[in-house]
């Protein structure tokens, strides 16, 4: 059974422990600006919502990449940036309709969630279980993916 990140915004307090854990895992620094997961604040509503890549089955970023720099991690199903191949053209950043691939100005390459190879640091760091890493069936992500693919690509 493939696992996926499950996000429950109702439990999020906006503390950004996930962003620090993510950036520390990936960049070796506590740097929310480089986090692959971002917490958005809905000030007026009083809500916080962590947000990251859902690892679409048929990933738009991957298809749009001109140089085969987004590949699938066979263990986790994650779509992973192959740093050595990414030229930094940013086509994936506009192709991903979820906005979850971002350009890193420091490295000149793009970054996205890679599920930390199957042990996501964000989920471990979250103090309220707003982010958990669970069986994909339970996340509702499949529905979201299907919806995304239909609405963007036609009714295949």
């Amino acid at each position: 059974m493939q696992r996926a990140l499950h996000i429950d915004p109702g439990k999020c307090t906006g503390c950004l422990q996930c962003e620090m854990a993510c950036s520390y895992e990936n960049e070796g620094l506590f740097n929310p600006a480089k986090s692959r997961i971002k917490v958005f604040t809905f000030h007026h509503e009083g809500r916080f919502a962590p947000y990251t890549c859902t690892q679409c089955a048929d990933a738009w970023c991957q298809k749009a990449c001109p140089v085969d720099a987004i590949q699938i991690d066979r263990n986790t199903g994650a779509k992973v940036i192959v740093e050595a191949r990414c030229v930094g053209c940013k086509v994936c950043t506009i192709a991903c309709p979820f906005g979850t691939v971002n350009y890193n100005t420091a490295s000149g390459k793009v970054i996205k969630c890679d599920l930390c190879g199957g042990d996501p640091a964000c989920a471990k760091a979250c103090p309220t279980a707003a982010i958990t890493y669970i069986d994909a069936d339970w996340t509702g992500l499949d529905k979201m993916r299907a919806y995304a693919e239909q609405s963007l690509a036609g009714t295949a």
């Binding site: 307090t13 906006g14 503390c15 950004l16 009083g46 916080f48 309220t128």
Partner: peptide, 19 residues
């Protein structure tokens, strides 16, 4: 009270968000 909220890095999250 709508929710509690944390400051940066805080795992206590005592902040009050109210209307």
């Amino acid at each position: 009270l709508t929710t509690n909220a944390g400051c940066f890095g805080c795992t206590i999250a005592c902040g009050r968000i109210s209307t």
